[in-house]
Design a protein around this nucleic acid. Structure first.
Lengths: 237, 237
DNA sequence: GCGGGGACTATACAAGCGTATAGATTGCTG
DNA sequence: CAGCAATCTATACGCTTGTATAGTCCCCGC
């Protein structure tokens, strides 16, 4: 489950306690979520007392904000570095297997589920990037590039959240080289071919057109299907 | 944020307390996660005492299992109903806007993040279905239909987890008719066209081929990019 | 040498959690 | 009507959580 084993890495003990706490927090927040990772757990894995976390970061929220800004900074620098030394050709693919970037994606994907300002910023930024890319390489004919980009980014982030289920379905951990290769291959397949045939796509478009005119079913419509067979309802008396 | 307002729906008060608790729990679990929804919150919204939940379900884990099996049963019955009365043509599209199915998807997507046996079963089942569909309608040429299906299902479920970020990017709640229509339109666009051009796809395939031969970068390789500029490292003394 | 301040620990505290238990209420049945 | 079982509430217990505080250690400038 762990991506970067904290103890045992000789560079880890060389870090200051503050950096060690932050790195452990980044990993545990990504793995267990904000609420799931306790101050005491982080302190234990970082090899410090719980009080020291408060001393350095003020509160758990402060630690989380420090994680946010630090990881945001790291990923921005990696991204700038990548676009500087070469086009986004295979750089994007390389980045997806870069351990730091992978941790960053996992961290922010988790933060998006838990809710955090930095995660929102990251999401919006990636949607902006995707929208620009779509309009620049205008090969995808969509009438709504922003919605398209939003769906794309959300799916990508969501895929990371489901990693252990994908691993189970594949029979191989997607964070090992073999598993990740197999998953990325499937992703490339997914991105390079249309899933829906032109007939199915036209059919879906037609249904969407009808749905756009009439009123779609709202949430306040229970009992339309699959209900009424279990004894939920109280007997009238 | 709420999909089905509990109080105000005249059918809601007619339910037994047990069913009321279960329905509220399903919604709160889907919205806030298992840990995020407390027994007391559920009791409050269901209009009962916290002790009654224990009386009916034994424990929080019991309540969760009851939610799992109940929602599993509901969705299976809806699915059977759908395939019985017509092909899966636009039924799949209709189902995606069906309020009960939408709640079910949200519930299980959340349960997949939190980890639950029923969520695993649901995920695996959907992967199986997707794989069958892919091999039956063999229009997508992938060498690994299982991985393809797993990625597809994971992305779909992950998209639901990111709904408020998609809503923010779109400027409209995706659970309102307008927002959902716009998102589903983008999804149909996404599914009916290839995102990557043949050139980019070939390029990606080539990189993947190289990556398959050599050893990909492992997790234990820090400092490759974007590090070393901040004063993390302790001064030697 | 000697204050002084940052790094760090140990301990305690209030709040919220799931859970347990005792008792009140209700409705059915003999 | 008595009795019993199911339903439901009120209250408390133990645990974990984030947080607060007091105190120790150690390096560094004067």
């Amino acid at each position: 489950m762990t991506v970067t084993p904290p103890v045992g890495d000789p560079a880890f003990e060389d870090l200051t306690a503050r950096a060690r706490i932050r790195d452990v927090a980044l990993r545990l927040f990504a793995e267990r979520g904000i609420e799931g990772a306790t101050i005491r757990d982080i302190a234990k894995e970082a090899g410090v007392s719980a009080g020291l976390i408060r001393h350095h970061f003020g509160s758990k929220e402060g630690l989380r904000e420090a994680c946010d800004t630090h990881m945001l900074d790291r990923m921005m620098r990696i991204k700038e570095d990548a676009v500087l030394r070469g086009g986004m050709g295979d750089a994007g693919l390389f980045m997806s297997v870069h351990p730091t970037v992978l941790l960053g994606y996992r961290y922010f994907a988790r933060a998006m589920v838990d809710g955090s300002p930095a995660a929102e910023t990251t999401f919006d930024h990636m949607v902006d990037l995707g929208e620009e890319w779509l309009t620049a390489h205008g090969q995808v004919d969509t009438s709504d590039p922003r919605a398209y980009a939003a769906v794309l980014v959300a799916m990508q982030a969501g895929l990371l959240m489901m990693h252990d289920h994908v691993s189970r379905a594949l029979g191989a951990d997607v964070f090992t080289p073999e598993g990740s290769l197999r998953m990325i291959r499937a992703m490339v397949d997914f991105y390079s071919h249309a899933l829906l045939s032109p007939e199915l796509a036209a059919q879906a478009q037609a249904v969407l057109g009808q749905l756009g005119d009439q009123q779609p079913p709202t949430a306040a419509e229970p009992g339309s299907a699959g209900e009424g067979a279990d004894d939920d309802r109280r007997d009238p008396h």
